[in-house]
Design a protein around this nucleic acid. Sequence first.
RNA 1: GGAGCCGUGCCUCAAUGGUCACAGGAGCGGAUUUAUAAUCCGAGAUCUGCUGCGGACACAGCAGGUGGGGGUUCAAGUCCCCCCGGCUCCGCCA
Length: 1003
Amino acid sequence: MNKSASQNGVPMSPAPELKATLTLPQTAFAMKANLPQNEPLRLARWTSLGLYEKLRKAGRGRPVYLLHDGPPYANGPIHLGHALNKGLKDFVVKSKTMAGFDAPYVPGYDCHGLPIEIKVDEKLGHKKLEMPVPAVLEACRAYAQKYVGLQTEQFERIGCFGRWETPYKTMARGYEARTLEAFYGFLEKGFVYRGLKPVYWCIHDRTALAEAEVEYENHTSPSIYVRYRLTSDPAAIAPALAGRQVSTIVWTTTPWTLPASLAVAFHPDFDYVALEAESGEVYLVAAALAEQVAAACRLGHTKQLARFKGALLERLTFQHPFLERSILGVLGDYVTADTGTGAVHTAPAHGADDFYTGQRYSLDPTCRVDAGGHIHVDPAAWHLAQPPAFDGLNVWKANPIIVAMLEERGALLGGGQLEHSYPHCWRCHHPVIFRATEQWFISLETPVKRADGSETTFRQVAIEEIDKVIWDPAWGKERITNMIATRPDWCISRQRIWGVPIAVFLCEGCNLPIVDAALNRGIVDLFEREGAEAWHTTPLEVLLPAAAACAHCGGTAFRKETDILDVWFDSGVSWLAVCESDPDLSQAYSLFQKGEGREVPEVLYLEGGDQHRGWFHSSLLTSVALRGRAPYSHVATAGWTLDEQGRAMSKSLGNGVDPIDIANRMGGEIVRLWVASVDFREDTAASENLMQRCAELYKKLRNTFRFLLGNLHGFVPARDRVPEAELLPLDRYMLARTRDLTEKILAWYEAFEFHRVYQAVNEFAIVDLSAFYLDVLKDRMYTFAPTSTARRSAQTVLWQVTEALVRLVAPILTFTADEIWEHLPAVEGREASVHLALFPKPEEIFSGDPAPILAEWQKLFALRDEVFRAIEDWRKEGSVGKGLEASVTIVASGDFTQFLRSISKDRMQEFLNVSSVFVGDLYADSGELRNLLGDQAYDLIKSTFANRSFRAFASRAIGTKCNRCWRYTHDTANYGIWQNVCTRCQSALCEMGIAPPQPEAEK
RNA sequence: GGAGCCGUGCCUCAAUGGUCACAGGAGCGGAUUUAUAAUCCGAGAUCUGCUGCGGACACAGCAGGUGGGGGUUCAAGUCCCCCCGGCUCCGCCA
């Protein structure tokens, strides 16, 4: 209690304390947030309130803004990249909602595909082989559902709003039906063909892979030089070679492809030379590489016998190094002169270039490597009773055996190991191979008609559609354009089971599919009713009318295709399966697709930059093919989340900061604050340290709000609000500043510049509010009578600032803004949650143009800085104390003196937090200033004043300290038993109805 | 190989071509018991050159200084070119 009294041994006075007459901040808004404990409670409250439904209801009739969610893959807990992704989307949805749009958000999940199937395989083990397909699918479904549930819980935990009870799932029956419908759309419109082609093949997962499913990683391969002996007449190349033993040398890093070697490719325009080695053999290699090859193959001292163009080597024949096969000399302009020998061994079954070259020369592309990567020797090229040692081995095991076989036969001229980047399966990270197999393709060169009837290709229309979309950042457009321009046909088939079946009937006679729209419709309906499993469970006879006959060959025997669709096809049709089909979205989406009417909604896709080759890409292709236009109007891309070492955090690696761990220890709000703090268009760094930073900023913001709320205690807006015209100048200034801030923040939300919102709010709270306005206001808030106009003026502004700020931060500080909302002074008709409110309107905060007011005050802030410096100087001289113990002398000149004098003393003292201020003109008031500062100081100022417009000096305040407000004045008096109370405080006490307390009767 | 992003104090970072380059954190110095698990104030850019001094250190002042170097401009952290460093994406056939 009263310490000094008891220390003096005087009995404690029961008289009321002067301090108790101050109006100190009072609020139930806790200083300590306890986010990990309190956030879940608030989530539960929102659920019971039905907040998302309420938002939808509130949005009815407003213009629609459609952010269509790209589905994350449902096979694990979320990582920071997910948190960034969903956090940004949530900022968009919330800010658009508060900006007056109806912004529904239907989250989605990508459920089919290899990673889940593999996991389920691992779990089931041998059992899988005995299980019927539908049972395995059921297990996959359950696995995916488990992670749909987990991720949903986690996304909600970090405060993301959306239709979480009923998200879209690519494995939902309806979605599967739509996916199949989309495939049939492609099929019926003639985009689809089935063909033999080299595709990336994962022998571990036994499936074809799309380009998007391949990642390049380092891999060590054997690097060998192999001799191919010429069997045609060497004199045909150059007379000098007549009768000589001539060979060429190929270089390869995949010895296992040699059994499939059918040709050697030369560049038609390169110079080739015939080199005579020390051994006497003659080798044909590219001139540019001759020296290098001679060294690598230890040819010794070489002699050039002839020089000629590669074109001359076409249709020569060579002997395969270990098979009984003639190898054809072919030409290809993909042969390069920087590595290898200029002679490229060509296996049409195992390379794209090789395949197309093979087609030109009618070579057989049959692949003798099976799905598991086992080589099966071509019986036509192997006449020995014993199969070769590599027969039946997988390609990696076959490599060294083939190398040994070459060595044995003297065909190995050089060898070593090479570490190079090599395609790997993005899911299992095993190296992949090229393998020519029968696959389903969507042709990018499909002829299509534009809206105006002109003829073009699918690829071309896709590129034209890209141009109509806003890409943010802008370079994304170039990126995806290049990808579409150069990509090969889309291989959409996979040899797995967990996905949407390519539900077609193939003619046993000619292998062509039945294309029958009515039949297809029936299968789609079947999927709708029973799910994709129906393809496996329903016998062919039931699915196919008995009278069916092949339109091509008339055959009547059919089989069901067993391949499934690429998962990128699944998610790539979400615009159809979700935007067009979901009752909450379809109406707005159809407005968008028609592109007509007054209010054409925006459709935004917002994902990581990797989706240029993923979801943005596949969605574009499917929508352009089936609807003739891009599925979005706006695409925004986020950079990568990097860990502290600067390594990318990616879906497949799953490294880095765990957002849920942060939410559990610091709060989901902290994760959100981090998301807001980064410029998402660039790569972003995250670490424990940076999260800590956000947590500290959070504390500061929270405390600022707490102080605002505390000082609004007792303020009833309808009763106490002071009209704008009657506000004190300082308070008016703050309103102008708040309007200015609001305008900026609204524009930043509009442009998705969330990090600027973060910065500006941060700065406003710390600099404008905490360090300035709130600090300055303490005197007025604490010591003036609660009902006084001056105090109400301040409260009016504090109230408006808080009302504006809480809305402006609500999209980011989702939990805290809502908590603040509950502690605001009651207002009739207030929404149940801040999230149901709209952003503040700048003109309702302050009616005038803020710019001139801000400019005027700018001058005063320079003065404030100077005064604080002066007080600091004075403190250093040994006098201690706070600003109120100081009296300040300001020396100014000319117009600035006039300007300062136009401000009342009280305002000046309040603004500077000092007890008294004297403003003197350097010239006009020299006498007075000499008195106050001393001749020496005055002369010094006068001589150094040239480059300044003012100087300030602090000295001990004169007068007596008021025990209530702590200002030093000349007019303190006793107020009852309270000693030294200034007249301002006395009248305040009067106004508060507190009579001077009288001493207690003597004991 | 192609495309792009980034580089600002010890750290994290801001800045329509326009004041003296924002702010926070850490550390330093100080104040406050009336936001107190809180708040406020102050000093503070690594370096280079020059001046003050007979000279050195220290100090003070001035000028330059936003990875380095050029350029455009009345004016550049910002626009252009080159270089260095970090990162990402795309491509990568033997």
